[in-house]
């Protein structure tokens, strides 16, 4: 009965939206935590050896994909997944 209420009352869509937000937001935090350490190290290396900038950028941008995963999940939740349809 509660389930029916959730589905009919539009609460489900609210929960989907919250889930989508969490997926992107938490992934963003994860990516940020990952980049923090790499970023600091890269800045240190580039200060000593400017030629390392390209490779440093490469390493620093690696964890960026994490947030894209989160976003992909959000997009699927918001647009592609229609539950109980």
């Amino acid at each position: 009965m509660v389930v029916a209420e959730i589905i009919d009352g539009g609460i489900l869509y609210g929960l989907i939206a919250v889930g989508a937000g969490l997926a992107t937001g938490l992934a963003g935090i994860g990516a940020g935590v990952g980049e923090q350490g790499i970023g600091a190290a890269v800045v240190g290396v580039v200060a000593e050896e400017p030629g390392f900038l390209g490779k440093g950028l490469f390493l620093m941008l690696l964890p960026e994909t994490l947030i894209i995963f989160g976003l992909a999940v959000s997009l699927i939740l918001m647009f592609a997944w229609t539950p109980f349809a």
Partner: peptide, 12 residues
């Protein structure tokens, strides 16, 4: 796999 998903950033 993540290589391909990574291109979603173009949209995002």
């Amino acid at each position: 796999v993540s290589n391909l998903i990574s291109y979603l950033r173009l949209l995002a």
